[in-house]
């Protein structure tokens, strides 16, 4: 993806690659880690783990409900299952199993949804996950993570491994720009402030973090200073970071997800209850996308730095309303 190129961000790995590599490192450290996949190991990159630890890897075939149920059983016996499939099939096909076999009993299963969002591109809507964050947030006890780049993905996969309890992590298909060019600190549930600014706060996750940084650059050229937060953990939400962001007097959220039930909804709830300020939402809205090149889709469905800039100006203009 070419997001962030014009502000000098260099292209890194896909977050699914960073996930696959981190998983191998985790496998070396912790013999209790087991990995399950549903006939997508070469896409989700669990094939790296499968190669390194064949006896701790299970390919259950094209059967996501069974995949999740088996993970629940393994976790009940003290294993730490990392389970992977495309985000859409994992969350949508096996939601009741995630509910009854993982969330309700509070089991220590790490659910990884790859090919998240619409950046999967040409394969089209049936393979695109635009509702996974909403679904994962609707599982009590789950932590929900949306890493922005390779650094974030590797660090958050490792954080998920030591976190006790179920976790959902969304990773993506395409190579993405490196937001954390000099590395970064990642704590589950703690947002990262990437830029200070007094006029508006841009709160994003996943690929939209690079877009938000790009937007802050464009806004700066117009004399508007934007604070940029990487809200890699949607749940539990870093409300203190939201409260700080609200001191700018206006907030824009940006996510590669439906407008329903994702980052924007989570931030809006915190803002409404703790620090009311005008908000604007950059998202896919309420629609499925279509086949196309990832860049074209981001353009068509309004997931761009320009869209964030417009939203920021709207939010700033509404400051006097509140």
């Amino acid at each position: 993806m070419n997001i962030g190129r014009r502000i000098g961000l260099t292209l890194g790995k896909a977050t699914r690659d960073a996930f696959g590599e981190a998983l191998v490192e985790l496998g070396k450290e912790n013999p209790n880690i087991v990995v399950l996949d549903g006939d997508l190991n070469n896409s989700t990159k669990t094939d790296l783990f499968a190669k390194a630890f064949p006896e701790r890897f299970f390919n259950v075939g094209i059967a996501e409900s069974n995949l999740v149920g088996v993970a629940g059983g393994l976790a009940s016996c003290g294993k730490v299952p990392f389970i992977a499939s495309f985000a859409c099939f994992m969350m949508c096909n096996a939601f009741d199993q995630l509910r009854m076999s993982v969330a309700f009993p509070g089991l220590n299963v790490k659910v990884v949804g790859s090919h998240g969002g619409i950046s999967i591109g040409e394969d089209g809507p049936s393979q695109m996950s635009v509702e996974d964050v909403a679904l994962a947030c609707a599982l009590p006890g789950f932590a929900v993570l949306v890493p922005a780049d390779q650094e974030a993905a590797a660090a958050l996969v490792k954080a998920a491994a030591v976190h006790r309890g179920p976790v959902y992590i969304r990773v993506g298909r395409p190579k993405v720009p490196i937001v954390y060019q000099n590395g970064g600190e990642f704590t589950l549930g703690r947002a990262n402030c990437l830029r200070e600014g007094r006029d508006v706060a841009l709160i994003a996750n996943g690929l939209m973090v690079a877009a938000a940084l790009e937007a802050s650059h464009l806004l700066h050229q117009e004399g508007i200073e934007a604070l940029v937060l990487d809200m890699h953990t949607v749940k539990p939400l870093d409300e203190e970071a939201v409260v700080r962001a609200a001191q700018t007097g206006a907030i824009v959220t940006a996510e590669e997800h439906l407008i329903w039930g994702g980052l924007g909804s989570a931030v809006a709830r915190a803002v409404a209850s703790r620090c009311p300020v005008p908000m604007e939402f950059v998202s896919l809205g309420d629609t499925y996308a279509e086949s196309g090149k990832p860049e074209e889709l981001f353009e068509k469905y309004g997931l761009t730095a320009e869209a964030i800039v417009r939203a920021a100006k709207h939010a700033i203009a509404r400051k006097k309303d509140v």
Binding site: E122, D123, G124, P125, S126, Q127, E290, S291, G292, K293, E296, L297, K300
Partner: peptide
């Protein structure tokens, strides 16, 4: 599989 084409990557009965 091109943007705007009804021939999507997977079949779409609406398109």
């Amino acid at each position: 599989r091109q943007l705007g084409s009804p021939l999507e990557g997977h079949p779409n009965m609406r398109a």
